[in-house]
Amino acid sequence: MSTRTERIDHLVVGGGAMGLAAAWQLAGRGARVLLLERFAPHHARGASHGSTRNLNNAYDEEHYLDLFDEAVGLWRGLESATGAELLGLHGLVTHGDGALVGAAHDALARRGASIALLSADAAATRWPGMRFQGEVLLSEDAGVVRAARALDALTDAARAAGARIEHGVRVHGLEPGADGVRVIATGADGAVREILAGHATVTAGAWSDPLLAGLVELPELTVTEEHPAHFAPRDAGTVWPSFNHLLESDDLDAFDGNVYGMPSPGEGVKVGFHKVGAVVDPDDRPFRASEAQRAALRDYVADWFPGLVPESAEEISCTYTSTATGRFVLDTVGPITVGAGFSGHGFKFTPAIGRVLADAATGAARPPEPFRLAAHQG
């Protein structure tokens, strides 16, 4: 079978949220952009599917808060451009470890964010479906990103800007050279394609390591399968915020990880432990939590959520691709830009990360220093 060769300015490998955002940003600058995605739209094998994600600004690091503020503006612009409602700003509550809650409060207060500190009793009066620990940080300008809608909006915006997006195409390797990157890929029909790109941006999630082995010295990336669940409210009229529970040491001994969640209209309230799943091969994973993990999540909900039915769990499966620090990997090596290691908290930043990747791929600006490869070394 003959090999078809094509030339392109920018190739994006991986069509989840980050790849779509990068393609949108690159195409908007007038570049010829081709995005290749191995799986079908809205596939459930990665990290971008599902109905909702926390729009969470409870950080004390300026580089994340800068990205958050930029991302909210870009999400709003994407809403205007596509007519899709992507954000729900019903508020976010963060409670638990007092030092961590206080640090996030102070960082947000310095920026003039719309926040308040509530007592646990006051918070429980306002949101009777939940129980709280210590002072509660309320972020008014936070809530949810409607993830599935966001993927469609990013796809529409990227195509409107001129990007080509192809699904069912697997990239087998990248060969950087003096003039760019040579890529070999195959489609669902088995036809072999050679793509000569001036630059390649790799946003392949759990498949980043094998694609970039020997080309980019990535920090260790750990792929885990995580299993939040939707729980049914006892009362359909209960009002819910998005939430973070930063567990104190005694609770961490019982539950292994911090907790996050949000209301997901039509599905219930999503509750999950953060980064507690088993290490998996993304091509060979069970798509099922262990009985111990399921029991732990039910026990947590029974303890902290009087307004939810613990036995009603509808389990979800997704992957995290995490760095040791939880910081993202955003950088360029020769003709390859990488966006990886989003560590289970990247989705809300998606459009801003797309801008960072486009800047890096075009040489317009380097990514923020904490996300560069050098910052992950040592």
Rank of each mutant, 00 (worst) to 15 (best):
I115R: 02
S48Q: 07
H172S: 10
R234N: 11
R193Q: 15
V309C: 12
T201W: 00
E369W: 06
E175L: 14
E291P: 11
L89G: 02
E194G: 14
L65T: 03
A27V: 03
A113C: 01
W304T: 15
F349W: 03
T52Y: 03
A374V: 12
G88Y: 08
G162A: 05
D253M: 10
F39T: 09
A295H: 12
D209F: 11
R170E: 15
P368W: 00
G50K: 03
A178S: 14
F68E: 13
H376V: 03
V171R: 02
D256S: 14
R298H: 14
D235E: 13
A204D: 01
F255D: 05
Y260M: 03
N54V: 14
A158I: 08
R111S: 01
N258A: 12
A206V: 08
Q377D: 14
A123G: 10
A236K: 13
V93E: 03
D299G: 14
L87N: 01
P306Y: 07
R298K: 13
I8H: 09
A200E: 10
A197F: 11
P368I: 00
S290W: 01
L108P: 10
L11M: 09
G173Q: 09
F349M: 12
G354P: 04
T238L: 15
L108S: 08
A103F: 04
G346T: 04
V93D: 01
L221Y: 06
T155H: 12
L20T: 02
G77H: 10
P219L: 07
C318T: 11
A116Q: 07
A17C: 02
G134T: 04
W127H: 05
L218A: 08
G307D: 08
K348F: 02
A352G: 06
V333I: 04
I115D: 02
L100R: 15
G143V: 07
L67V: 04
G334K: 06
Q133P: 09
S322I: 07
L174Y: 11
S322F: 00
E248H: 13
D284V: 08
R4S: 15
L118F: 10
E248T: 14
H43Y: 05
F231G: 02
A147D: 00
A157D: 07
L26R: 04
